[in-house]
Each structure stands twice: as C-alpha cells, then as structure tokens.
Simulated assay, not measured.
Amino acid sequence: MPSIAEIQEEIVQEFEMFDNWEQKYEYIIDLGKELPLLDPKYKVDENLIKGCQSRVWLHAHLGDNGRIRYTADSDAIITKGIVALLIRVFDNQLPQDIVDADIHFIEKIGLKQHLSPTRANGLLAMIKQMKYYALALNQLTQPS
C-alpha cells in the first residue's frame, strides 16, 4: 500500500507528462468520469461540503482494516475530477496518517493557480472535510 506522500509524487509525475493546462484539465475531467458512482443514499445535505461553489457530496467510513474509505460525487465535471484526485491520495489510508498529511501535490502541479478563487476555496474545503472525517474516525479507533 503506497503512502500518502508516494501517491502525491505519482500524481506530480503524471501531470509533468502534459504540455499545457488544457491537457491537464482534460485529465482531471477523465479522473472524475472514472470515479465510482456514489450510492444515492449518501447524496444528502449532511454530506455536502460547505464552501464549494459546486455541489460536492463526500462520504467516509472506516473499513474493516482500520483504514478510511472515501466516496464522493459532484455536479461539476472539474470538481468531480479534483475530488477524485483527493480520494486517490487519502482513500484506504490510516486516519492518523490523513490527519498528519502534508498535501503538497496541489502546489507542485500548479492546480491552485489554475482554479478560480471560488474553486480554490472549494478545494481547501474538500481537504479540510476529508481531514475532519479522518480525525473523527480516528477517535473511534482509539482505545477508551
């Protein structure tokens, strides 16, 4: 199982293969199309990420192996691709590793600079929510 840092480096290397941002956006859109469908029962208001211009639903649960499993969907194709990238980084990781993770791939690939201010805020809101879920689920794994 690759670490969060290793997955981020894979993403950075993938984005280095593209010559321009039009190609990078196409890749992000393709990632969104590959995202598994979110079960409709999770498309509820409490799973909506606050601070996103688009509607983004994020669900997290603790897997049998003590690692967090994320699923998500969005009504915007670029946003769906961005959340797919974040799921790739955080999915199937230990809660404490997610809480402690330094998310550097966004800067390295130049994503934040190529998003509108509202999309950039939404990106930060997605990361914050994923880490919040990790923190909450980490509490469940700690002996009382």
Rank of each mutant, 00 (worst) to 15 (best):
L58T: 02
E22W: 10
L115Q: 03
D97P: 02
M126L: 01
D30H: 15
I28T: 05
L58Q: 06
I87G: 01
V44F: 09
R69T: 03
I127L: 05
A60W: 08
Y27F: 14
I127P: 00
P95D: 05
S74R: 01
T79Y: 00
Q53A: 14
N121H: 13
I28F: 07
K24A: 05
T71W: 13
H61C: 11
D45L: 11
L94K: 07
I109T: 07
Q93D: 04
Q113C: 03
A84R: 09
K41H: 11
T71C: 14
L123F: 08
E26T: 13
E34R: 14
P40V: 12
F18Q: 10
D19Q: 14
K33D: 11
H114Y: 11
A84H: 06
G110H: 12
S116W: 13
W57P: 12
L35W: 01
I78P: 03
G51W: 04
Y27L: 09
K33I: 05
G122M: 00
R88C: 01
V83G: 01
L124P: 01
R119Y: 12
S54Q: 06
L31E: 10
S54W: 02
I78A: 06
F90H: 00
W21Q: 01
L94C: 06
K80A: 10
Y42Q: 10
N20Q: 11
I87W: 00
A72N: 12
G51V: 06
N20E: 12
D64Y: 09
R69P: 00
I78V: 15
I29F: 13
I98P: 06
L94G: 00
L37T: 12
G32T: 07
D39E: 09
G51K: 08
G63C: 09
I78N: 02
L111D: 02
G110F: 08
D39W: 01
I87Y: 04
L38P: 01
A120H: 10
L35V: 03
K50W: 05
R119M: 08
R67H: 14
G110W: 13
K80C: 05
M17A: 14
L38K: 04
K43P: 10
T118V: 12
L124I: 12
K112C: 08
M126R: 00
R67P: 02
F18I: 12
K24E: 05
R55I: 06
K41I: 15
G122V: 04
D73F: 14
L37A: 15
G81E: 02
A101R: 02
G81T: 04
V89S: 01
K108Q: 13
I109N: 00
L48Q: 14
T71I: 14
K112W: 04
W21C: 03
Y27Q: 13
K108T: 07
I127A: 02
R55C: 09
L111N: 05
S74G: 07
I82C: 05
D91K: 02
F18S: 07
H59W: 14
R88I: 02
I82T: 04
A84K: 10
L111R: 06
K41D: 12
D73L: 14
I106K: 02
V44A: 15
Q113P: 04
A120N: 11
V99E: 05
R119S: 04
E107W: 03
K50T: 13
K112S: 11
A76F: 06
K33Q: 10
